[in-house]
């Protein structure tokens, strides 16, 4: 455009839109600028779930409660699967609460690109905001469900006196953070891989269901023996769930070696997730 003024190439530019073939150009500042959007999405998720319902957020509590009763009937009463020294209700409540956080977050973040294609196709914002917002809104729901567990737990600790927690309970936020990160990372990896090839989506939806059976949600790890145990332990969630239970119930298996495995697993998948998400977000709209 010769008739327009020539610019000086040494100028500083605020935004550079390139083919985006480099793997490592993250914009932390930009993410910070959009923090309000993150909170807005979280608010939207929470508000819209119970609009036009009578019980509102109470529905969040019904879900783990009913699931636990179901587990109690089927796995405990009928199938006679022991939950060790932990009262079955408490065991199932914690298990389903943690598991539903993980599976729901994974399910929704793994559809980030496909579900939001219409918004992403019209306006730019750092795409990672969306899965992040799902992680946070999931946490709000988790906290409500967790407080239900907490009430039961208080009863069993102080009234029933069947279980005795220990100081490892203070590490709970660490285990929780790792579970949060794992669901987030798996989700963004899957959504990045499925923009072009949808096949994986089918695998994921029932794969997650199956994965529950190799996570100590119904069966405590102490009840699993032999080679099957290794199978459980290779699941990075297993040690985290067990550590959770160890703190609250004084029961469970706390193995530093396997916790380290889970931590390494989390960090590696975080790195992979962020890199491929960052790569895919630039051009997925052409193929979605």
């Amino acid at each position: 455009m010769t008739e327009f003024a020539k610019s000086n190439d040494t100028d500083t530019w605020d935004i550079k839109i390139t083919s985006g073939n480099s793997y490592l150009d993250f914009h932390i500042n930009e993410l910070w600028h959009y923090r309000d959007l993150l909170m807005m999405f979280v608010k939207k998720d929470i508000i819209t779930v119970y609009k036009q319902t009578i019980l509102g957020p109470l529905w969040f509590i019904a879900q783990p409660l009913l699931t636990s009763i179901m587990f109690l009937l089927i796995f405990n009463s009928i199938a006679k699967i022991s939950t060790g020294a932990v009262p079955p209700v408490l065991f199932y409540l914690l298990g389903t609460t943690l598991w539903s956080y993980f599976s729901e977050t994974l399910n929704v973040t793994s559809k980030t690109f496909t579900d939001n294609a219409s918004v992403f196709g019209k306006v730019y914002f750092p795409r990672i905001i969306l899965p992040l917002s799902k992680v946070v809104s999931g946490l709000v729901k988790f906290l409500i469900q967790f407080s239900l567990f907490f009430i039961f737990w208080l009863y069993y600790v102080f009234v029933d006196k069947k279980i005795s927690p220990n100081w490892y309970i203070l590490l709970t936020p660490v285990w929780l953070l790792m579970i949060v990160l794992l669901s987030f990372c798996f989700g963004i990896i899957i959504t990045s891989l499925t923009t072009k090839y949808r096949d994986l989506i089918f695998l994921i939806s029932f794969g997650v269901q199956l994965a529950m059976y190799i996570t100590p949600v119904i069966i405590p790890l102490s009840e699993v023996h032999g080679k099957k145990k290794l199978f459980f332990l290779l699941n990075p969630l297993t040690s985290l769930f067990e550590a959770f239970k160890f703190g609250f119930f004084g029961q469970g298996i706390l193995d530093a070696k396997w916790l380290l495995y889970s931590a390494t697993f989390t960090i590696i998948s975080l790195a992979i997730g962020v890199i491929i998400f960052n790569k895919v977000e630039k051009r997925f709209i052409d193929t979605v």
């Binding site: 500083t12 935004i15 550079k16 839109i17 390139t18 083919s19 196709g121």
Partner: peptide, 28 residues
């Protein structure tokens, strides 16, 4: 779409100075 950063170019570069907003649709 390139200018509004919805997708990125196959090659080449666009440089922008200042805050940019794209209205490809209202009510997104």
């Amino acid at each position: 779409k390139l200018l509004s950063r919805v997708t990125s170019p196959t090659s080449g570069e666009i440089k922008i100075k200042g805050r940019i907003a794209a209205l490809l649709e209202v009510g997104t």
